[in-house]
Design a protein around this nucleic acid. Structure first.
Lengths: 212, 212
DNA sequence: TTATTGAGTGAGCGTTCACTCATTATTATA
DNA sequence: TATAATAATGAGTGAACGCTCACTCAATAA
């Protein structure tokens, strides 16, 4: 009752650190073994706590999985896609979006691996939340951008969501094949080079002759 | 010793029908529950055989998974990508490849769902085999095509594998998001329309003005 | 008619694993 | 320091499941 406010804050802070610590461990194990292949025992060991402690912070194993994108991915991704400096050239803007996405994805390979493996099997609500925080987040952002810029005459008037998903698909497939599907059997180019080529391709097309 | 040849053939035929029947059941259950979530009991029930029978045809549960692309996907996909009629216009050719791929993918949604969920967690050899029969099959085919056509001056001289994967990515992402990730929350266009827009976009670029 | 075969069966074995809870350790308060 | 409150622990539990194997029986051969 006389509990000083500071102490409560400290406690909450410690508590959320514990949660984060457990989640990081869970992510690593999920990424290597898959959701069902991962065991609570292994996660507990990796987190340096006992099995019981995990159940003090998470209802069950599934809660552990569903907490991952909430606690780990969302904040840094959201920070990168504020719809602000769109006054740049298409080339610059798209290259920046692409590089920012790649950076985020690269920093979250494990999470994406887990998502890819789990999403097809998840129930409706969980899938919706996952997607809203990842794929849809980026592609909706792009869709709005294209919509606005088509109106201004920057882009041809194709369907904005086709533009958005096409652009997104171009580099997302690179990322997924490179980092997740194949090991290193891949094109001998850096992401910067790929980004430049992809944006160039997206803007100007693949054909050699511009004759119509 | 006097066994008539016909009888042997019939037996083999029946045997492979049994295998196919079990595999179809396995595919359905894997697609809904994931590999580890699926139980042999449920697969057996769905296939209309006993659990023991499954082990007469497959070494173990994993063998069931690995047999899927071999027995189900490979033949029809291979039939569609014979490198023959490349003398067509880029527009026609790419649209055909794209529609053929979409057709194949659509006919194999369950399998792709299973692949996507399993690949990140598979061991090296299994992953290699899976990929060779699916993603790599299409993208290598495209890469060779672009390589040849770049030499003939049809396309700008970008990196062939960037072209291939970019093109592949454009529609593969459409397919995956549409059929697997999202339910029906998606663009109100048919695959034909999307294919046309995507090919057009790929060939001519997104920019409105062709001024350089 | 009898013998042989082997595909088919499913109860049961052994193991794994998520989750519980009585006990112990730690921290806060009086 | 004593006491209360909270957190952490990990052995234990029960359910689930992959896989085995002793047995059945219809089809075929002798």
């Amino acid at each position: 009752m006389m509990t000083p406010r500071l102490s409560v804050q400290r406690k909450e802070q410690l508590e959320s650190e514990r949660k984060a610590q457990i989640l990081r461990a869970a992510l690593t194990v999920f990424a290597r073994k898959g959701f069902r292949g991962a065991t609570i025992a292994e996660i507990a060991k990796k987190a340096g706590v006992s099995e019981g402690t995990i159940y003090n912070y998470f209802r069950n194993k599934e809660d552990l999985l569903l907490s991952l994108p909430r606690e780990i991915l969302a904040p840094p991704l959201a920070a990168h896609f504020s719809p602000e400096k769109e006054a740049e050239s298409p080339q610059n803007f798209l290259e920046k979006v692409l590089m920012a996405s790649l950076e985020q994805f690269t920093a979250n390979v494990d999470l994406i691996r887990v998502l890819l493996a789990s999403v097809p099997v998840m129930d409706e609500a969980a899938r919706e939340e996952y997607l809203r925080r990842t794929v849809l987040f980026v592609s909706d952002f792009l869709e709005k951008y294209f919509q606005k810029e088509i109106a201004r005459g920057t882009y041809r008037s194709l369907h904005p969501s086709v533009l958005a998903r096409t652009f997104f698909g171009m580099f997302f497939v690179f990322f997924v094949t490179q980092e997740i599907l194949l090991g290193k059997r891949t094109v001998p180019l850096t992401y910067e080079e790929i980004a430049k080529e992809a944006v160039d391709l997206f803007l100007h097309g693949a054909l050699a002759s511009k004759a119509n």
